[in-house]
């Protein structure tokens, strides 16, 4: 299922914008109405959410299940960190540079990856993820070694504005970047929906009709690299520290699994699932110290059985069900069991 994003010519179309305004509204409410814990905690989840958007794009739109998007993520993050530490602290500059670094990295890797399919891509990208951490660890002048970098200067939104350090502005900023980048991804994917569905579904026929399949996939991979790079910049802006472990297999696995839970064809679903996953690991498990992996494992198992096709498919089924119930307009009350759960 793909969200549509046309311009709001009519009132009816405005409804399509609501999903995009929801996270912004939620972030504003959170920033306004809670203590310092929630804004900082949620803001720190958003880089992974945006990385999951990038992974879902490659996995869903291009059909290439990947663990390798941590490479452009790392490129974006270290570019941002080094720019900030060199005294260039403008956020728009960071985002642009990180997106370019991400696209460049993904472009290079894409030349190798997009020629392959299925499990081979998964394993090649596993090597990419592992080699990304190793390279970051070894390249100490950039990464600061295994302990990484800390105390990276905060970004400025515009010249002359105060640095983005307080938790609430950081949350609003990170939400805005995440939503904008996801919306841009969706717009592009929607515009090329026909081509991508066709290429993914039947490569041979598409090639025989003159479609350079590999080039299309490379473009998607590279574009998703720009999103991953942006996510890397966001990682620095929300954390202001980074270690090589943050751009390794664990992060890649969480992002890919979030994309699966969200429904691989839905970047926004992946973002929501990433927040859910980190919510379980960092928030729900905080009161049962030492058992975060157990809860995370339970979440994954539950997601497989209870949400076939991911969150997005569940939402679609829910909508279909509501429509069906409305259409039949049954007068009898709902069964007791469903009342209890609703």
């Amino acid at each position: 299922m793909t969200a549509r994003l046309p311009l709001p010519h009519r009132w009816d179309d405005l409804r399509r914008w609501v999903p995009w305004l929801l996270p912004l509204g939620a972030a504003t409410t959170l920033a306004a109405a809670s203590d310092g814990y929630w804004p900082a905690t949620v803001a720190r989840m958003l880089p992974l959410a945006l990385l999951a958007v990038s992974v879902a794009t490659v996995t869903g739109a291009a059909g290439l299940p990947t663990l390798g998007q941590v490479a452009p993520y790392a490129a974006g993050a270290y570019t941002t960190a080094r720019l900030a530490m060199a005294g260039h602290t403008l956020a728009p500059v960071h985002l642009t540079a990180a997106a370019l670094a991400g696209a460049f990295t993904a472009g290079l890797l894409g030349m190798l990856l997009v020629r392959h399919r299925g499990t081979v891509v998964l394993m090649l990208s596993l090597a990419v993820a592992e080699l990304t951490t190793i390279t970051a660890t070894q390249w100490r002048t950039v990464s600061g070694g295994t302990d990484g970098l800390a105390g990276i200067p905060a970004p400025h939104l515009l010249p002359g504005t105060p640095p983005l350090t307080a938790d609430r502005p950081v949350l609003l900023y990170a939400t805005a970047v995440t939503v904008a980048a996801t919306a841009a991804t969706m717009l592009l994917l929607h515009r090329h929906h026909l081509l991508l569905t066709a290429v993914r579904g039947n490569e041979t026929r598409a090639a025989a009709s003159g479609h350079p399949v590999t080039t299309y996939l490379w473009l998607v991979h590279t574009g998703a690299g720009a999103i991953a790079g942006t996510a890397g910049a966001l990682l620095i802006h929300t954390h202001r520290w980074i270690t090589p472990a943050d751009v390794g297999f664990d992060t890649a696995a969480l992002a890919l699994l979030a994309a699966v839970i969200g429904g691989t064809h839905s970047p926004p679903g992946a973002a929501v699932a990433a927040v859910l996953v980190l919510g379980v690991r960092d928030v729900a498990a905080a009161d049962w110290p030492g058992h975060a992996p157990l809860l995370l494992g339970a979440l994954f198992v539950a997601a497989v059985y209870l949400l076939p096709g991911g969150l997005t498919a569940a939402l679609t089924r829910l909508r279909a069900e509501i429509r069906r119930v409305r259409a039949t307009r049954r007068p009898e009350p709902l069964p007791a069991a469903s009342r209890r759960t609703s």
Binding site: L194, T197, A198, G201, N202, R205, A206
Partner: peptide, 12 residues
Amino acid sequence: YPGLTVLDCVRM
């Protein structure tokens, strides 16, 4: 093409 309509296939 799975996921495409007949017309879209010809468009492709």
